[in-house]
């Protein structure tokens, strides 16, 4: 139960973070047709907003979430960005959280730090454990 889906543009920061995280994850393509998932997952995405906060979520991520099945399986979002963008720091996470009614689990800058990696790893483990427990409860 460690479903992870991520997007990283050709600058590759998010991809480098995911590589260091070392967990199995599906990378969303730049242009090819969007994949469809069949299990619950957490989404990791960078932010590319303009000064007004428009266009924060990458197009590939929007395309992926436009698929209602993918959207239904989304459990939470981890957002990348850069604090130098001020009030729109990691805004993609907030936009997705609001539209899809899921929590923002974490925010990080660029390719993340060692602390970020450790927190994401530990946080995901806890999060999935809690999710699983909930599923057991509702099934019982």
């Amino acid at each position: 139960m460690t479903g992870l889906v991520y997007y990283s543009s050709r600058s590759g920061n998010t991809a480098r973070l995911m590589e260091r995280l070392g967990l199995k994850a599906l990378r969303l393509p730049q242009t090819e047709p969007s994949p469809e998932v069949d299990a619950p997952y957490v989404l990791v995405t960078p932010t590319f907003a303009d000064g007004e906060g428009r266009g924060a979520v990458p197009k590939s991520v929007i395309k992926f979430l436009n698929n209602t099945r993918n959207r239904a399986l989304l459990q939470g979002v981890i957002a990348g960005g850069n604090r130098n963008f001020g009030t729109t720091f990691a805004l993609a996470g907030d936009v997705i959280a609001k539209k899809c009614d899921v929590p923002v689990l974490y925010r990080f800058e660029l390719a993340g730090t060692e602390t970020d990696i450790a927190r994401i790893r530990a946080g995901l483990a806890r999060f999935w454990a809690a999710q699983e427990q909930q599923t057991c409860l509702t099934q019982a």
């Binding site: 428009r54 939470g76 936009v95 609001k98 539209k99 923002v104």
Partner: peptide, 18 residues
């Protein structure tokens, strides 16, 4: 956020520019 906060509660996005 959920991972670095107290863990019991989290905020759903504040974004307006959706």
């Amino acid at each position: 956020d959920f991972f670095s906060g107290s863990g019991s509660s989290y905020v759903i996005g504040k974004a307006e520019a959706t």
